[in-house]
């Protein structure tokens, strides 16, 4: 068994709210430097910088996980993680088609940049990626599973874009067995809410720039083998009701 340090929530320059300097290779490099074995890239409603991120992670000797921070129709943020890059890309296309046709205004929201694994900028996304998709929160878990991934709600302790705040309470009918808490969330938060009984938790850095990547890891998973199939299987076990 290997004890593997992980963080499964981060953004690259494709997310308008992230720094332009947060190219996938820079984020991957900092995760490696900070001692992480496993890191996921979860840009808003897109996996299109994941190929570069995975390649950069490989270069730096850590395991990259392709992912997305899906924004549901209720504006609830949901982390979706995949075993295969190809499934993540198919999911990404599915979500892209369900985003409203609103163009980004880079001066207001920030630029949405595509990058290659060497950090070069290869293009810019014109559709606003932080819009709500047409996918409902009750659909998200099944949908991610259909694409070979797993999904759970992000930063449920926060005010903005959180399942608890936007929907009022946790409902097992949504199909999630696990939830993410923000790094700043008090440890006793889950025990203060009866509706969270039985739910498992992990924390996500939600790093939008390198300084937000934790200086040292605080979460670990025990794996027989450090590969994507084992990571997704570990998450799925915890994410079942």
């Amino acid at each position: 068994m290997k004890r593997c340090a992980f963080d499964l929530h981060s953004h690259s320059c494709l997310s308008p709210c992230a720094e332009n300097s947060s190219t996938p290779d820079v984020m991957a490099g900092l995760f490696a430097l900070s001692g992480f074995d496993i890191a996921a890239l979860t840009d808003h409603n897109s996996c299109r910088n994941c190929e570069a991120f995975l390649k950069a992670c490989e270069h730096y000797g850590i395991l990259g996980i392709p992912g997305m921070e899906l924004n549901t129709a209720e504006e609830v943020h949901v982390i979706c993680l995949f075993e295969e890059l190809s499934s993540a890309m198919a999911f990404s296309e599915y979500v892209y088609k369900r985003l409203p046709d609103i163009r980004n205004r880079p001066r207001i929201f920030g630029e949405q940049l595509y990058a290659a694994w060497d950090g070069s900028i290869t293009g810019e996304e014109e559709k606003l990626l932080i819009s709500a998709s047409g996918i409902g929160v009750y659909e998200a878990a099944d949908l991610a599973a259909k694409f070979g991934g797993t999904a759970y709600p992000a930063h449920i302790d926060r005010e903005a874009n959180s399942l608890l705040n936007n929907l009022g309470f946790w409902d097992g009918g949504m199909g999630f067995g696990m939830a993410e808490l923000s790094m700043a969330c008090p440890a006793d938060f889950p025990s203060r809410r009866e509706d969270l009984a039985g739910v498992r938790f992990l924390r996500g850095s939600d790093a939008h720039r390198v300084e937000q990547i934790p200086e040292r890891p605080s979460q670990f998973m025990e794996l027989d083998k450090l590969d994507r199939a084992s990571v997704i299987a570990w998450l799925r076990r915890r994410n079942t009701l």
């Binding site: 209720e74 409203p100 609103i102 819009s131 005010e159 903005a160």
Partner: peptide, 30 residues
Amino acid sequence: LLSWVMGRAEPGNAWFTIMSNQNVAAVAVM
């Protein structure tokens, strides 16, 4: 829900909301 406001509010409208994060200003501009 910011996306609804972005898609449905008319120019010149006053917007009543309980949301208080910085995206509120961005949506108001949009």
